[in-house]
Design a protein around this nucleic acid. Structure first.
Ligand code: SF4
Ligand code: SF4
Lengths: 149, 149
DNA sequence: TTAATTTAGCACCGACTTGGTGCTTTTAAA
DNA sequence: TTTAAAAGCACCAAGTCGGTGCTAAATTAA
């Protein structure tokens, strides 16, 4: 539980993939094959990322997707929001769903938690995911870039 | 998305409630009424917390639930794990579901994120949620208007 | 022009999860 | 014995998630 969706996972993988390929246009078919993920679903995800203008799309033969100018400063938080909708740790945030916010004794702490979780997601950028980039984090043992919370 | 479930939310609220009531046994009906949450569901949650021995249960008239000795050092992470099952930020953790962990370029960063998110949840204890406790975190909105019992 | 390749849009489905309820049994106090 | 309460367990409706089908539009190559 408290799991990232496949959409986010595939999206992050795709962005890392495109980042390491720099300028070229890559088709969904090519990417899906290399990444070993379902092509149709990856396509949906890439459409969303293109709509959000993180990547450029090009139709027709030799078309595909390409990194936009420099999206490496986008954070994991941004990607998750684009692909899963607004990140709401509880139902109290926009005051809509919860009717007992005024008397809730845990609201204070909970919103602190939510804030920090968002902080974590915002502390990682695409640069951290992109192989070849100086900030890339390879498997388990990597210099800990601690967050500031 | 990336939302806490109601089970966790109700569980945390219930624990905060019990914490501020110290020694007494409180029945589900009483708690549900004061907290304005569905009684039957709250009951299910409390059962789980009792099974995990964070709270004591007592059947029969004047029975109910009560804080166990001193669970204030339990963290939000613990509660969420009890009520939602193991917290898995992605599917790679126990090596079961994911078949491409070896070639995954984002695995390093993603597991760092997961680790830090868990760290956040582990950084808050029941003490932070319990009104009256010196470590309690009040929200601006709730300052004076805590539920009276 | 025509055909092929590729993204865009959008609806849809099956499986699982979540929030919530019903009902019966057990425990314990009055 | 009656009554208040938790324990256990099954069940349901609605939503989410992973994934697919299908058609249309754009671009390139012949
Ligand atoms: S944490 Fe409190 S204020 Fe927020 S949704 Fe839950 S009950 Fe409402
Ligand atoms: S992050 Fe990589 S290793 Fe982990 S589940 Fe996703 S693809 Fe597998």
């Amino acid at each position: 539980m408290l799991r990232l969706t496949k959409r986010s996972e595939y999206g992050l993988m795709a962005l890392a993939y495109l980042g390491s390929r720099a300028a070229e246009f890559c088709s969904v078919r090519e990417m899906a094959e290399d990444m070993a993920v379902p092509a149709r679903l990856l396509a949906e995800v890439l459409k969303d990322l293109a709509r959000a203008e993180l990547i450029n799309s090009q139709r027709g033969p030799n078309g595909g997707y390409q990194f936009a100018k420099d999206p490496t400063h986008f954070t994991i938080f941004d990607i998750v929001e684009i692909l899963e909708g607004e990140v709401q740790f509880t139902n109290c945030a926009p005051g809509l769903t919860c009717t007992r916010e005024s008397s809730c004794t845990i609201h204070g702490a909970i919103s602190k938690v939510a804030e920090q979780v968002k902080g974590v997601l915002d502390g990682f950028t695409l640069a951290h995911l992109t192989p070849g980039h100086p900030d890339h984090m390879m498997s388990a043992a990597t210099a800990a870039k601690s967050l500031q919370v």
